[in-house]
Nucleic acid binder design. Structure first.
Lengths: 210, 210
DNA sequence: CATCATGGATAGCATGACTGTCCGCTATCC
DNA sequence: GGATAGCGGACAGTCATGCTATCCATGATG
């Protein structure tokens, strides 16, 4: 198919498709001459993945590029890809990570993980994000919220087991890789949306039962 | 304290403090004349909350303003505040919500909630976000991931019960209100960070046991 | 009394994610 | 075989966000 058809059937405007091409998110089509190129199903699929990562996952264009490069790297072992996906989701840190309070929170985050016996990379971005949140909670005098951490950890551990086995159940590598990325990014969107709905339900039920 | 001290002790640059004042995130200090104003602990606290919502929660300045207006509205019933927080977190939708695929996903989202007996506002933003994610998953041929939805719902329901009762356990309204906001926004950060860590642990454990 | 910070207003800047325009070329439809 | 619509490629322009910088008249402070 031609670029205009790619644009039309994907719903992504033509200038934007060109932009993604320029930015290396979308591989160039098979050139059929100086000013004609052929795109196929794989491009369409890729374009949809890009939009999902941006629109639903909230990734930046740079983050998407990172993820896609990892996806396309056939050598990369699976859980490296996961790490890349996590880095891309994380983006640039906004919080100040130099204060003593943050360092303490960071140590606390490491402790939570260690207590659970989780084997994670010592400088996983998620550890820093957890520290950001813990530090903020303490700074705001909301430490009592930290009582939830164990419940969160328990729940996420159970869910992660399900997710990972679901992805591993797929036979081939390509399907696993895509599942990993979408599971990580879109799964997070599903989880947080459901959390909000559950909160709304529960708070309505408790403040206005019946 | 003076504005410069507020800036110094909060770690937020003076121009930024002025910016937040201009934007109405921070209430003006008690004026002591044409060019002098007095700020207090409440301002410091508020400033820290703003930074937490922006840095950790990822809210936009507009979103923060929305939340704080609700926080300051003493009339607003509790679960309205929750709704406002959810709207502010959600921000402007990025996905296209006019396609038939999206409508189907939206109906599916409503069904998930209804099947659980969750009582939520029929146009809660989280329902749309859930639909965004479901639509993306289907569009990408990753429907099998939707098998997780029930587990997510189950887990979030249990967690929400804990969270809400934790917040309600606080005596006074002001503490509850702040707990609600921080619990919603920062709790989400904690949850997603832990989810990523759990994923990393699990995938490492399954691909490389020992 | 000399400085210096302050409140208030306005302008400027960096980044990110597009969007619009132009150009020379070519496939395709009369 | 000529018109014309679409194409690839290069770039400049746009818009929103979240600050940051400058200026000024005033008044606090040593």
């Amino acid at each position: 198919m031609k670029i205009s058809e790619l644009s039309r059937t994907s719903g992504v405007s033509l200038p934007t498709v060109k932009y993604y091409l320029r930015e290396g998110l979308l591989p160039p089509g098979r050139s059929l001459g100086r000013n004609q190129a052929e795109y196929d199903e794989a491009h369409l699929r890729r374009l949809r993945l890009i939009r999902a990562l941006i629109d639903v996952g909230g990734l930046s264009v740079a983050g998407v590029r990172q993820v896609l490069q990892a996806v396309d790297d056939a050598e990369l072992p699976g859980h490296h890809l996961l790490g890349t996906a996590h880095e891309a989701i994380a983006g640039a840190p906004r919080a100040d990570r130099t204060t003593p309070g943050w360092r303490a929170a960071r140590a606390e985050a490491a402790r939570v993980v260690a207590d659970r016996g989780w084997r994670v990379h010592a400088n996983a971005p998620a550890l820093d994000q957890l520290a950001d949140a813990i530090a903020a909670l303490r700074e705001l005098g909301q430490q009592d919220m930290l009582a939830m951490v164990d419940d969160y950890a328990e729940a996420t551990e159970r869910l992660a087991r399900q997710e990972v086995s679901l992805v591993l159940a797929r036979g081939d590598r390509a399907a696993m890789v895509e599942g990993l990325v979408t599971g990580t990014v879109l799964g997070e969107a599903v989880l947080t949306a459901l959390r909000r709905l559950a909160q709304e339900h529960t708070s309505a039920g408790l403040t206005d039962p019946g």
